[in-house]
């Protein structure tokens, strides 16, 4: 049997894709599993060579250390910043997207392009102007500062997504509400928003997770542990002499957990949404 026909045999086999996927799934998930195990090691074990995979004496030492460190405070800060950003994105994004989608006006196409263009500007390019603005406004090292900047990061794309939701929303439902004596604002608040709750929730969750992961602005604009989010807090365990890998792994688990849970539940919808998008494009 020649090489070519052997190769063909491998490609044709029904088992091959399962093997490929199993191997790659293992590689892709291994870092998460490894830090999960690592977070239950003692500091001594976490620093020893050869490294172990499964902790020889599982302990909660690392978690206790995290809870008693300023990192806990940065987790709280992340929660505040991400919630504030999600609220602001929805408060600004819902009316904007609804207005453009259902009551198009002269220049609404241009407005959408403005949003798209904002998405393309690299956030790092605006770092220096933001630095000057926040210094002027005396907002550096405040929650407000990060909430505004994180809203800037998420807002343009979220308007696009929300507009896509509202585009699919039945016009008749709004008209029916208007006939029943609802004002246009009332139809928006009492009909369109509640009936699009699932889509809005998705946008909210994505914004939340996105903000939760943000690092660069947090690094530049926060100075103290009572404001800094956990993406900065995790460096608490990176010392000059030694990196406390077990505690750092525990923080890594804490930081990744919200999104991991979301992805496990939303996996189906993410792929469906993308498939729909791919057909539309």
């Amino acid at each position: 049997m020649g090489l070519a026909s052997k190769l063909e045999g491998i490609v044709e086999s029904e088992v091959t894709p399962y093997i490929v996927l199993s191997v790659f799934s293992a590689v892709m998930v291994s870092p998460i599993i490894l830090i999960f195990f690592n977070s239950f090691k003692t500091l001594h074990e976490a620093l020893s060579w050869p490294p172990t995979i499964i902790p020889s004496q599982p302990t909660l030492e690392a978690y206790v250390k995290v809870i008693n460190s300023p990192v806990l405070l940065t987790l709280r800060n992340s929660l505040i910043i991400a919630s504030g950003t999600t609220f602001l994105v929805l408060a600004l994004g819902l009316p904007t997207a609804y207005g453009i989608s259902k009551y198009s006006f002269k220049g609404s196409k241009f407005a959408m392009l403005f949003f798209l263009a904002s998405r393309i500007i690299p956030p790092l390019s605006l770092l220096i102007p933001f630095y000057i603005m926040m210094t002027w406004l005396k907002l550096t090292n405040t929650f407000q500062c990060l909430i505004i900047l994180d809203t800037y990061l998420a807002f343009p794309l979220m308007v696009w997504i929300l507009k896509a939701f509202f585009d699919e929303f039945e016009r008749d439902l709004i008209d029916a509400a208007l006939v029943d004596g609802c004002s246009r604002l009332g139809a928006f608040l009492r009909v369109a928003i509640p009936l699009s709750a699932v889509g809005i929730a998705a946008v909210g969750i994505i914004t939340f997770l996105w903000t939760w992961n943000e690092f660069v602005y947090a690094m530049i604009f926060t100075a103290t542990e009572d404001i800094a989010p956990v993406t900065i807090g995790i460096f608490h365990f990176v010392g000059d002499e030694v990196i406390e890998w077990n505690s750092l792994s525990a923080v890594g688990i804490f930081t990744s957990l919200p999104a991991i849970i979301f992805f496990i539940f939303a996996q189906k919808y993410i792929i469906e949404g993308m498939t729909k998008g791919a057909i539309k494009l």
Binding site: S25, P31, T231, G252, T255, S256, F263, I264
Partner: peptide, 17 residues
């Protein structure tokens, strides 16, 4: 699900890991 999980890890954590 397994293959999209790394997406959940913040980039800065991914670097540390």
């Amino acid at each position: 699900t397994l293959l999209i999980l790394p997406w959940a890890v913040p980039l800065v954590v991914s670097g540390l890991v």
